[in-house]
Simulated scan of single mutants.
Amino acid sequence: MSATRVCGLSELVQDQPLKVEADGVAIAVVLDSAGEVHAIGDTCTHGDISLSEGFVEGDTLECWAHGSAFSLRSGKPLNLPAYEPVPVFVVTIDGDDVLIDPSLKKEV
C-alpha cells in the first residue's frame, strides 16, 4: 500500500479528533496542542466505539463511552476498562495534505 491523502492540515481543529478512512481502515486524526498530528485506530479496544467522538487532553484521546484514555503516541491504554492498545500510524505532511499509510504502523 502507499500513503493516502486523508484530509487537509487546514481541516484539522486543535484537540478535536477527525474520523477518516484510509484503504478501508478507520483512523482518528488529531492535531494536538503542540501542533503535532497523530493518527490512531478509531475503534476503542474495550467496545466498538469510535474514538474520534472522544475527548483530547494533552497527548491522549479518551473514549466518550467508558473513559479509557489512549496515548496518541503509543496507542496504549492509560486506564481501564481498556487493556489492549490501538494501532498508531505514521503521518506524513506534504504541504496541506495529511497522508497516512495504514500498513505502516508507528514503532513505539
Results as ranks from 00 to 15, higher is better:
residue 83 Y to S: 15
residue 47 G to F: 03
residue 57 E to L: 07
residue 7 C to T: 02
residue 49 I to M: 15
residue 56 V to R: 13
residue 64 W to Y: 12
residue 38 H to M: 03
residue 46 H to M: 13
residue 71 S to L: 01
residue 50 S to K: 08
residue 12 L to I: 02
residue 54 G to R: 05
residue 10 S to Y: 00
residue 18 L to S: 00
residue 6 V to S: 03
residue 23 D to H: 10
residue 71 S to G: 03
residue 30 V to F: 05
residue 37 V to I: 14
residue 79 N to E: 09
residue 57 E to T: 02
residue 9 L to N: 00
residue 39 A to Q: 11
residue 20 V to E: 04
residue 70 F to V: 05
residue 48 D to Q: 14
residue 58 G to I: 04
residue 13 V to C: 08
residue 84 E to G: 00
residue 17 P to F: 00
residue 70 F to P: 13
residue 37 V to M: 14
residue 76 K to G: 02
residue 25 V to G: 08
residue 47 G to R: 15
residue 84 E to H: 04
residue 82 A to V: 06
residue 62 E to A: 07
residue 34 A to H: 11
residue 14 Q to G: 03
residue 63 C to L: 12
residue 78 L to V: 03
residue 65 A to G: 08
residue 44 C to R: 12
residue 40 I to R: 14
residue 62 E to N: 08
residue 77 P to M: 05
residue 38 H to T: 01
residue 44 C to S: 13
residue 75 G to L: 09
residue 43 T to W: 06
residue 18 L to H: 00
residue 23 D to M: 10
residue 22 A to Q: 11
residue 78 L to I: 03
residue 42 D to E: 04
residue 38 H to R: 05
residue 10 S to I: 01
residue 45 T to I: 04
residue 76 K to C: 05
residue 12 L to G: 05
residue 40 I to W: 10
residue 43 T to H: 01
residue 11 E to R: 06
residue 76 K to Y: 09
residue 15 D to Y: 06
residue 41 G to K: 11
residue 81 P to F: 06
residue 12 L to S: 06
residue 57 E to W: 04
residue 34 A to Q: 15
residue 55 F to P: 07
residue 83 Y to K: 15
residue 71 S to T: 00
residue 52 S to P: 08
residue 37 V to Q: 14
residue 77 P to G: 09
residue 78 L to H: 09
residue 56 V to F: 09
residue 23 D to Y: 05
residue 23 D to E: 15
residue 19 K to P: 02
residue 35 G to E: 04
residue 22 A to K: 13
residue 42 D to M: 01
residue 69 A to Q: 12
residue 15 D to W: 06
residue 51 L to H: 07
residue 33 S to M: 02
residue 72 L to A: 03
residue 40 I to T: 06
residue 47 G to K: 12
residue 66 H to T: 05
residue 47 G to N: 13
residue 44 C to T: 06
residue 12 L to W: 07
residue 27 I to A: 03
residue 33 S to H: 10
residue 79 N to D: 14
residue 26 A to P: 15
residue 60 T to E: 14
residue 13 V to Q: 14
residue 35 G to D: 03
residue 75 G to K: 09
residue 69 A to W: 05
residue 62 E to P: 11
residue 48 D to F: 07
residue 11 E to C: 02
residue 59 D to V: 08
residue 72 L to P: 13
residue 66 H to K: 10
residue 65 A to D: 15
residue 26 A to R: 12
residue 82 A to D: 12
residue 57 E to Q: 12
residue 75 G to N: 10
residue 81 P to Y: 08
residue 24 G to W: 08
residue 18 L to M: 10
residue 25 V to W: 04
residue 76 K to F: 06
residue 56 V to W: 10
residue 53 E to L: 07
residue 39 A to E: 07
residue 46 H to A: 11
residue 74 S to A: 07
residue 72 L to Q: 04
residue 58 G to A: 05
residue 58 G to R: 10
residue 61 L to F: 04
residue 42 D to S: 10
residue 9 L to R: 14
residue 62 E to T: 10
residue 20 V to G: 07
residue 25 V to K: 14
residue 72 L to Y: 04
residue 45 T to W: 08
residue 15 D to Q: 10
residue 21 E to G: 11
residue 20 V to T: 02
residue 15 D to L: 08
residue 49 I to Y: 14
residue 49 I to S: 12
residue 58 G to T: 05
residue 79 N to S: 07
residue 17 P to D: 02
residue 28 A to E: 00
residue 66 H to Y: 09
residue 40 I to H: 13
residue 55 F to W: 13
residue 43 T to L: 05
residue 49 I to Q: 15
residue 68 S to I: 02
residue 65 A to T: 03
residue 32 D to K: 03
residue 19 K to N: 01
residue 45 T to M: 11
residue 16 Q to W: 02
residue 46 H to V: 04
